[in-house]
Design a protein around this nucleic acid. Structure first.
Lengths: 120, 120, 120, 120
DNA sequence: GTGGTCTAGACCACT
DNA sequence: GTGGTCTAGACCACG
């Protein structure tokens, strides 16, 4: 479910939190589901339990999961977080479009790119 | 012309290279223009000359400027770099649109956002 | 009567003892009343009987209840404990007022808040 | 400036963040001031640098300080945080008054306690 | 010199 | 078994 990319310059714990957020926000892991235990995930990914611990702490801090001591980590209800993320993604795209236009990109080219949806 | 943001988590030299690239690609500094000297810019920004040196070295490595020993640093002809950047910006926007759609954002919302050309 | 909040960071047994103390000190459960049995309460709350056991042991240790082997757990006479708690609550509020004043809160604002007896 | 209380059940890093927040919100450490370095403070308090690191990371996350890599940690402008804290303290006191009244404390006693400001 | 990340290993509290 | 805290020590990037 989660793959560590050692060529990625971001720290391991951030790769894990980001991937987990995606899985949760996209509904692949659902509200109430239990996450793999700190130790198990550490073994599976062959990294230190403290790194997983840090990732999970960050997820809890941001409201994606909640922790029950002695029981494990569980996914929270993230309805509002999904909406926040969607708005953020829209705003982010707009900002980049504005930036691109400043560099001389034709806005029609961008609209066409998107309509064809994908390209590369 | 250049403002350092100490609350920015990026290293200083990267803030400087990025800002310089923008100024060059947007044509605000033109091909053949001379950049401020390492010492002067360091004084002006109140930072270590080594940091400016590193920023300029990076700009030279990427072809934005060239150095004449004993004379100073000059802006290269960046015609092709501008086109590269424009393509990169378009690709980047497309990638993010694809990502946003995966999170459930309606592509029509994005197109409307862009047509109104502003924030969401 | 008792609700477990799994998102509460406190241990389960502490949530139970605290809630029980409130019920007893507020007189909702009275001196001589029998508490639900360890097994029943465990079943009702869907948690481990050991956890209930620990909560009851703590309540007994602090004098809120007494245990009759083979019969069950009964509420003690808690007259003095009620007074202790009231004094503790008054002291606690005063400490916090002193602290708030140190942060620049106007003591008149606090008095008004309390007279209106609600949130700020 | 900071004293560790080993009898305090809270984790060390939390004691440090809380104490630092107080110093900052009360204006004892001011906006722009540099905090002691991670290593220095660790030596001074005879605890592990990682623990200081965690405390500082938390302070940065909550907006009390900002970090410049290779330079150190500096106090942010916390005007709004001060107001937040004051409102939170007022609300907290009110909640406790409501709670105390439920336990049978006379609200006039509380008001008198506060007017005398302090007692114990 | 500064902070940031990661590992290894220990100990504790809770269930 | 679970997570939470702390230590010790290493390595890296930045200035």
């Amino acid at each position: 479910m989660i793959v560590i990319d050692y060529k990625d310059s971001r720290p391991l714990y951030e790769q894990i939190t980001d991937k987990m957020k995606d899985l949760i926000l996209k509904g692949i892991i659902r509200s109430g589901d239990q996450l793999p235990s700190v130790r198990n995930l550490a073994m599976e990914l062959s990294i230190n339990p403290n790194t997983i611990q840090r990732a999970y702490a960050e997820l809890e801090r941001e409201g994606y999961i909640y922790t029950v001591k002695g029981r494990g980590n569980y996914v929270s209800d993230v309805g509002s977080l999904v909406e926040d993320r969607k708005m953020q993604l829209r705003k982010d795209i707009c900002d980049r479009v504005v930036c691109a236009v400043e560099f001389g990109v034709d806005i029609e080219d961008i609209l066409n790119d998107i309509r064809e949806r994908g390209q590369a």
